[in-house]
Amino acid sequence: MRFGIFVPQGWRMDLHGIEPADQWQTMRDLAVRADEHPEWESLWVYDHFHTTPEPSQDPCHEAWTLMAAIGAVTSRVRLGQMCTCMSYRNPAYLAKVAATVDIVSGGRTEMGIGAGWYEHEWRAYGYGFPRAGERLARLREGVEIFRQAWTTGSATLDGEHYQVDGALVHPRPLQGTSLPGSEANGIPMWIAGGGEKKTLRIAAEYADYTNFSGDLEGFTHKSEVLAGHCKDIGRDVDSIVRSSNYNTAIGRDEAEVEERLAWLRNHLIITGQSEDKADAAVASMRKQPAVGTPEQIVEKMGTLRDAGLGYSIHYFAEAAWDTSGIELFESEVIPALAG
């Protein structure tokens, strides 16, 4: 199993209380820390404009700006977004942005891409909120534009939702051009979402990685659906790495796990959530595979690995203030599951 880590950027109110002038330094320090710890193959941010679970005036930094900045201050760790919303940016423009970030980072960009779901920010930014079928159709057309742009340096598509005519993307990404051993298709694409009829079909056609349900039952079912689509088009499902995201709370013993969860509850209340919502969030966390002692997490995540999970991406809510949980995960969990 391979491992990625999220950098707090504010979307989940995980920079709450840190002055805006200090937030980049907080994100930068955590990105550099991940870069210096080879246990982590990649670091990730979210592509959102408004905070969750409720829109607020808390900070929420833009994903692709962060990708460029983090790419400039790191040298090893790979850089991804989980996941970019196709309809927030014209796909030819986004292909150009991603190619530039790949150049800046020395060929370390991952393209997480999906159809999008956060209705409040869609409408607030003037994008409307098309039905799911249209959002998925845009996703399909957009990834075709990516593939053309990154493999040939130009994209042309007369689609239902996007029309581009010889859109030039030069320089092309380093990946797929001058980097030895890189993907021939350019920047690796992570098709995120578990929609069984359309999203997983798009993934079967275009994805280098998928990202869907992280619980054992859901992961196993979505994997079977993906395998069916791959069979239909003649692709080996094992050529696609399957990933999931995990809210993570780790402690050396049960008491320390409870301390983590108590901190989370308090933090949620401080950011403005009701006690009932905070209690519900903590109750949900207790059921997560990456919550518990190192031994408990290794057992649960090991079962997922055996079911085909090849990549897990971990979110530590307290990371901006406390990295001791990350350190414990690095020393006790990753060595037991990697390889």
Rank of each mutant, 00 (worst) to 15 (best):
M86K: 05
W122A: 02
R131Y: 09
E196K: 11
A317N: 13
T74W: 01
A338G: 09
I334L: 11
A255L: 00
G195N: 08
A319R: 02
P173G: 00
E144F: 00
L30R: 14
T156H: 10
D208K: 05
C60Q: 06
G186Q: 13
V143T: 03
G128Y: 02
E121L: 13
A92N: 03
R286W: 10
V45N: 04
A69D: 09
G310E: 09
R76S: 06
P8S: 06
G128V: 00
A320M: 00
I269S: 07
R33W: 14
T303V: 08
Y206P: 00
K287L: 14
I250G: 05
R260Y: 03
R2A: 12
S182I: 01
A255T: 08
Y125Q: 01
E41G: 01
Q296C: 01
F219L: 09
A307V: 11
E275F: 13
F219W: 09
M82K: 05
M189F: 02
D215M: 07
H267E: 07
I334Y: 05
D232L: 05
S239T: 15
L136I: 07
V143Q: 00
C85Q: 14
M1P: 10
W11D: 09
G214H: 12
V104Y: 00
D14C: 10
Y88A: 01
W117I: 02
W321K: 08
E254W: 13
E299G: 04
K300S: 07
Y88C: 06
F212E: 08
M285V: 00
T151W: 14
E121Y: 13
G228E: 05
R135L: 06
T100M: 04
E217Y: 09
V225R: 03
K197D: 15
L168V: 15
F129A: 03
C60P: 06
G214F: 12
V104A: 00
T271G: 01
H221R: 11
G251T: 02
P188M: 03
Q163I: 01
G116I: 14
Q273R: 15
Q25C: 07
G10T: 04
A21T: 13
G186A: 13
R2K: 14
A137L: 11
S243H: 03
R147W: 01
E254R: 15
G310L: 10
S182N: 03
G4S: 04
N245C: 11
Q81L: 12
P335Q: 08
L157D: 09
T293V: 03
S75D: 07
V333A: 06
I5P: 02
D238V: 11
T323V: 13
E295S: 08
S312V: 02
A207G: 04
F49W: 11
D47G: 08
L216A: 15
E19N: 04
L179R: 05
D215T: 15
Y93V: 15
R265H: 12
G80H: 01
L268R: 13
F6N: 06
V257N: 08
V169W: 15
Q163K: 04
V298A: 02
P55M: 02
N185H: 15
E141C: 07
S42P: 04
D47S: 07
F146Q: 09
G116W: 15
A95W: 10
G71H: 00
